[in-house]
Design a protein around this nucleic acid. Sequence first.
DNA 1: CGCAGTTACGGTAGCGCTACCATATTCAAC
DNA 2: GTTGAATATGGTAGCGCTACCGTAACTGCG
Lengths: 358, 358
Amino acid sequence: MIDDPAIRAGGESNGERERRPRRRSGGVTLREVARLAGVAMITASRAINTPDQVSAATLARVREAVETTGYVPNMLAGGLASTRSRLIAAVVPTIVGPVFLETIQSLTESLAAAGYQLMLGQSGYDGSREDALLDAIIGRRPDGIILTGIMHSEEGRRRLLASGIPVIETWDLTPNPIDMLIGFSHEKIGPAVVEHLLARGRRHLAALTADDERALRRKSGFVDAARAKGLTSSGLDGLPTGIVRAPTTLGSGRTGLIDLLARHPDIDAIFCSSDLLALGVLIEAQMQGIPVPRRLAVVGFGDLAFARDLNPALTTVRIDGTSIGRLAARLIVDRAEGRPVNDRVVDVGFSIIPRAST
Amino acid sequence: MIDDPAIRAGGESNGERERRPRRRSGGVTLREVARLAGVAMITASRAINTPDQVSAATLARVREAVETTGYVPNMLAGGLASTRSRLIAAVVPTIVGPVFLETIQSLTESLAAAGYQLMLGQSGYDGSREDALLDAIIGRRPDGIILTGIMHSEEGRRRLLASGIPVIETWDLTPNPIDMLIGFSHEKIGPAVVEHLLARGRRHLAALTADDERALRRKSGFVDAARAKGLTSSGLDGLPTGIVRAPTTLGSGRTGLIDLLARHPDIDAIFCSSDLLALGVLIEAQMQGIPVPRRLAVVGFGDLAFARDLNPALTTVRIDGTSIGRLAARLIVDRAEGRPVNDRVVDVGFSIIPRAST
DNA sequence: CGCAGTTACGGTAGCGCTACCATATTCAAC
DNA sequence: GTTGAATATGGTAGCGCTACCGTAACTGCG
């Protein structure tokens, strides 16, 4: 080889063996900033990350150097050195389908305010990509993982536990959380809705729900509570129910109502597993000339922005998604910064927003 | 300095000077895997990242070692060493407001399939947090940045350019993109909608739009095209228009229609800047007993899932958000992997979906 | 058989940053 | 003055991985 180190070294100084160069990221590094400010790298680092550990004069000089060079710290390097990536991962079944949006929104904002960035992953409604996604996430060494309304495999649980990364499960209340939990009881929603409908004089209840796990549990709570009150449809053990494919659409609300009415013409109240379904029911009812709420009461779930503006305004179950996101951010950040977290399980509850549709 | 390396070194060799330990991430490292497989670290690395560069036997041994240890590569370290983070950043004004969801969804999926992860940032509709967000993003050294329908400050442009990170701007067509561009012309949508409405015999057009930048440009195209066709409302230079605050809601659609009708009772067609607005218009029209489309034609924008299921089904302008996301992923990944990208500006166009509301 | 080209693998030195230790200096306390 | 603690700064060795450069063994070819 002509590329003999000795020959190459000759050019350098006298004996000085030539170090091979390496592709660099191209940007300004902390070394450069430190040199410009006339301090050691570590001091420059402190000036940037823990400003109150350096003197005012030094701080000013470092700040100026940062300014003139346009230095942006490489957080990959910082994360590697400190084992704190300042990345938080959030997993949702799917981002279309507006249920988790509020949560993601407030999560992103709260995290950004604390200097953290959100990584987003979609597991698919059937959790198909969940395990592969988990590896991709754990590989990035996030400081926390937020699971949004998700059923995880045993294998997934193990990997999460083994990774040692703080985990928050949300939008549900499981008996044995992996780590932390912020959610509410889907089972308890059903009875509350039954209560509400009974109070409004309804006796022939029905449910229209998506076939996803949590919606089905809400439905079960509803059906069981109705049965406990002695409300069973003629010839049925439980209640008239319609099941539609998740994610729910307005269209499936319309066909769902048609189907339910065909089988049970006497129903006078429907609990839908999403506001979108409820909107479909409202529209179909109106087309068929069925007055809401006079002949048919409709309850949704989610309290999406449009619910209050419908005609009639939609009675629905409200989950404070914004609180969930904000709280999740706080817990995760507290954990990441080593502050103690006392409430590892938080039930944010739900509320029924009574409006004109019931 | 007393901290002379020679002195310390002396202590080391005979007196076994204790090397200070350092907190480690706690997990299994590649070194461990390599040791178990009986190969060098670099070979283990190749077995994992470029499997066809190692022999079948070695590959199997490394795979087994990975299996038994539960090794998950630290991509922070990998990213630092290779200057390829395999992170892609996406910036949206806000995630609530369903317009960009399809794009984010397909983006996330396409990127995941290629081994990349999405970082999400929200700039706020007014771009207030944009500059701070940009630093947070650039600091993570993503392999690409996707700007979703965003107006960026000059300062932001500079920082992006200086960072050297590939950038894709989407949902718009600007004359001088920062880098790459996938979008469509908001201006051209207006004339197309005017065409459509004229063909359906409408003569008294109106617009109801949000006050965000792009919606206003769609409106301008609409108004200008109408004026060019000689369609001006009595006593007006242009067309009756209503402006509502972004983000749009169903409620603002309702009040918008009330307001427009009060000022211009003779209008027979409304172009709304979002499907949500259009839904509000439909609902309000129905409340007031105004038959759609007989007396009033309604056109939306976005073709959200519910548009086809409304009654009457909503005529709307469709943007293929899924394509935008998929294409953006491809361009970014191609750039990241060093493949040539020939079409740096792509116009994905739009289409008018004629339905019963016009 | 010699030579080049290919395939498989390894040693080493970073990527850019921060944890860990250390030193120098200052100021209050005794 | 000595001691102790707090403040301000610096040197160095990694964090866990891959780029760069090797070497050795094997192949095909004249």
